Amino acid sequence: MIDEFAKEYLHGDLRELREVLVWKLDGLAEADVRRPLVASGTNLLGLVKHLTLSESRYFGEVFGRPFPEPMPRWDDLAARGLDMRAAESESREEIVARYRRVWVHSDATISALAVDSPGHVPWWPRPNVMLFNVLVHVLTETARHAGHADILREQLDGAIGEGR
Rank of each mutant, 00 (worst) to 15 (best):
R92T: 09
E93G: 10
E93A: 15
E93H: 09
E94T: 15
E94D: 08
I95F: 05
V96T: 11
A97E: 08
A97C: 06
R98W: 00
R98T: 02
R98S: 01
Y99F: 15
Y99S: 02
Y99T: 00
Y99P: 01
Y99Q: 02
Y99V: 00
R100K: 13
R100C: 13
R101I: 00
R101E: 01
W103T: 09
W103G: 15
V104M: 08
V104S: 12
H105D: 09
H105I: 11
S106G: 15
S106W: 00
D107V: 05
D107R: 15
D107N: 13
A108Y: 01
A108Q: 08
A108I: 02
A108W: 00
A108D: 07
T109K: 08
T109L: 12
T109P: 06
T109H: 04
T109C: 14
T109N: 07
I110C: 04
A112G: 15
A112P: 04
A112H: 02
A112W: 00
A112S: 15
A112C: 04
V115L: 15
V115Q: 07
V115K: 09
D116N: 08
S117D: 08
S117M: 12
P118G: 06
P118E: 07
P118C: 04
G119D: 02
G119I: 01
G119P: 03
H120Q: 05
P122N: 07
P122F: 14
P122E: 06
P122L: 11
W123T: 14
W123C: 12
W123D: 11
W124H: 13
W124L: 12
W124F: 13
P125K: 11
P125G: 12
R126T: 07
R126Y: 07
R126H: 10
R126S: 10
P127T: 05
N128H: 15
N128V: 13
N128S: 10
V129Q: 08
M130F: 13
M130W: 07
M130C: 12
M130I: 11
L131Q: 06
L131E: 03
F132I: 11
F132N: 11
N133L: 03
N133R: 07
V134D: 00
V134C: 00
L135I: 05
L135F: 02
V136S: 09
V136H: 11
V136G: 06
H137W: 01
V138D: 01
T140S: 10
E141T: 02
E141K: 02
E141Y: 00
E141N: 03
T142V: 10
A143P: 02
A143C: 04
A143T: 02
R144T: 09
H145A: 13
H145Q: 10
H145M: 13
H145R: 12
A146M: 10
G147T: 08
G147A: 15
G147N: 12
G147D: 09
G147S: 10
G147Y: 15
G147M: 09
H148Y: 14
A149F: 06
A149I: 12
I151K: 08
I151A: 15
I151F: 14
L152V: 05
L152R: 05
L152I: 13
